[in-house]
Computed example of a mutant assay.
Amino acid sequence: MLLRKGMKIGKKINDIVVGERLQITEKIEDKDLLLYLGLTNDSNPLYVQHDYAAETSYKKPIVPTIMLNGIITSAISKHMPGPGSHIREQHLIYLEPVYHYETIEILFEVQQIDMHLNIVEILVNAYKNKNIPVIQGIIKVLPPN
């Protein structure tokens, strides 16, 4: 999405409330993995080579964690707080691998709001197969002013 004059900005800090939630669902497809690998030049065989991954404890290729991180940061930029926001700090723990073609659900919830510093703390929890936790953490975001 290209920014254009008059484009609506995201929520300002006064418009955000503790407990506000967002849920997104993403399926990891081949095209997404190929774009990631092309952009980063990351040649880790664990991400794409089935024969190599079969010899590891994962048994099949996994999705790069930075790609999962990108899905999370994209949701923040698009929806919560939205365009004009900027991530100031993040602490994410990757609990389980996500494999190619899996669908993940990511839940975001506003935990704290610091009006003085203009920072919103957002809890992130992601699951695969509806109930297997794969990511948990906190992201601190500066909403647009």
Results as ranks from 00 to 15, higher is better:
V141M: 05
Y52S: 05
R4A: 05
I139R: 02
H79M: 09
L33G: 13
V18Q: 13
G19F: 13
K12Y: 00
F108V: 08
G137E: 02
D42V: 14
L3H: 09
T40H: 10
M67E: 13
Y127M: 08
P83H: 04
I135E: 10
L2E: 13
N69K: 05
Y36L: 11
K11I: 02
K130Q: 10
R4N: 03
Q49R: 15
E102Q: 01
Q90D: 03
S57F: 00
V110L: 05
P45H: 03
K78D: 08
V48Y: 10
E26H: 10
K60N: 02
L22A: 12
V124I: 15
K59F: 02
E102N: 00
I139C: 01
I93C: 06
H79P: 04
G82N: 02
G6Q: 04
V48I: 13
I138R: 06
I87D: 09
R21V: 15
K128I: 09
K59L: 06
Q90P: 04
I104R: 00
L39P: 03
L2A: 13
Y127H: 09
M7P: 00
P61N: 01
K140D: 07
K31M: 13
K8C: 03
P97G: 06
V98E: 00
K31G: 08
N125I: 08
L92H: 08
I122H: 12
P61T: 00
A75D: 05
I132E: 03
G10P: 11
I87G: 10
L37M: 14
K59R: 08
L107H: 14
G137Q: 02
Y127R: 07
Y36C: 12
Y99H: 01
K5T: 09
E29N: 10
H79T: 10
M80C: 06
L123A: 06
I87E: 11
L46V: 06
N44W: 07
T56H: 06
F108Y: 15
I13L: 07
L37A: 15
I76S: 02
I119H: 07
I119N: 01
E109C: 06
I71E: 04
Y99L: 00
H50M: 08
E105T: 11
K27H: 05
K11F: 04
I9M: 09
V18Y: 11
V134S: 13
V18M: 13
I139H: 01
K78A: 08
E55I: 04
L142W: 07
Q90F: 03
L123E: 05
D42W: 09
D30I: 04
V98H: 01
N44M: 08
I9W: 06
I139T: 04
T65R: 11
